[in-house]
């Protein structure tokens, strides 16, 4: 299909969400900087959010059999708010970690090794 001339659907949004999600996962997996890991988390959450909003949208499906309706937006809102809270705590933890270890390298945070 020609994406420029035909209306897009939920699936296209979900693809973007999937890409962001995957990028987030990679980001979490490869960044040694704690802040990088944090950004990965943000990406992951955001990717999920796209799915929620897309599934709740009226513009992307005809009959809305699988539509979340406004609930999708509610969930997205809560995710955003909780992500903000999570970021605040994670940052605080990072700062604490930095205070204790003088680094933000997560590979150095292996004191819980079995």
């Amino acid at each position: 299909m020609n994406l420029l001339t035909e209306p897009v659907g939920v699936a296209h949004f979900m693809v973007v969400g999937a890409i962001m999600f995957a990028c987030g996962v990679v980001c979490m997996a490869v960044k040694r900087n704690a802040l990088g890991v944090l950004m990965g988390i943000e990406l992951v959450l955001n990717g999920a959010n796209i799915n929620f909003v897309a599934l709740g949208s009226k513009f992307l499906q005809k009959d809305g059999a699988f539509s979340l309706g406004l609930d999708g937006q509610f969930i997205a809102l809560f995710v955003i708010v909780l992500a903000a809270a999570e970021a605040a705590v994670a940052l605080a933890i990072t700062l604490n970690f930095y205070n204790n270890h003088s680094t933000v390298d997560v590979d150095r945070a292996n004191e819980l090794k079995g």
Binding site: V25, K31, V37, V106, D107, G114
Partner: peptide, 18 residues
Amino acid sequence: SLKAVQTGKLRQYVMFIV
């Protein structure tokens, strides 16, 4: 014997999850 899995490395845990 399962202790070795617990590497304490954040990034590996992420990989495990995924």
